[in-house]
């Protein structure tokens, strides 16, 4: 336990030192970065949902402004958010399988397979979500 802790005493900057550490370390770093992004969004989401208490006009004007303008740039952030959510979920499933002793011999292959499936699902999601927004 102590060894695992001391490895990261470099702080956040240590996460970015990928050289010679393999795909596992890359997965570890982006699992944390994506986790922090999702946590930030989670509280933002709670804040937006709190506006349901302010009535139909207020809530719908917020949803409309971040979907159709003037703040429709928010859709770019939504797409990036979907990307990190799908990445985080797929890598998380790989780590859960690792905990059960599954995939340890072929971790790199598991990473590539899970992330590839996840990115295909992401594209499908974005396609149908776009149809929904554009309707």
């Amino acid at each position: 336990m102590e060894k695992n802790t001391s490895e990261s005493k470099e702080g956040i900057l240590g996460w970015a030192k990928f050289k010679g550490k393999g795909v596992g370390y890359f997965g570890f770093t982006f699992q944390r970065v994506s986790g922090v992004v999702i946590l930030f969004y989670l509280y933002l989401h709670y804040t937006v949902l709190s506006n349901l208490l302010h009535g139909q006009a207020t809530y719908n004007s917020i949803v409309q402004s971040i979907t159709y303008g003037p703040y429709d740039l928010f859709i770019v952030f939504d797409i990036l958010l979907a990307l990190v959510i799908f990445y985080h979920g797929a890598n998380g499933i790989r780590l859960a399988l690792n905990e059960m002793g599954i995939g340890l011999k072929h971790n790199k292959a598991f990473f590539v397979i899970f992330e590839s499936i996840s990115m295909v699902l992401l594209l499908l999601f974005l396609y149908y979500a776009w149809l929904f927004v554009a309707a």
Binding site: L52, Y59, N60, V63, A82, G89, G92, F125, Y128, V133
Partner: peptide
């Protein structure tokens, strides 16, 4: 692992099959 299910259902419900965003309320 629970969240894979929760998030999957929520994304489908809220962003694909849940009506138009304007009437989201």
């Amino acid at each position: 692992l629970f969240l894979v299910f929760f998030v999957g259902v929520h994304l489908y419900l809220a962003h694909i099959d849940f009506g138009h965003p304007i009437v989201f309320y």
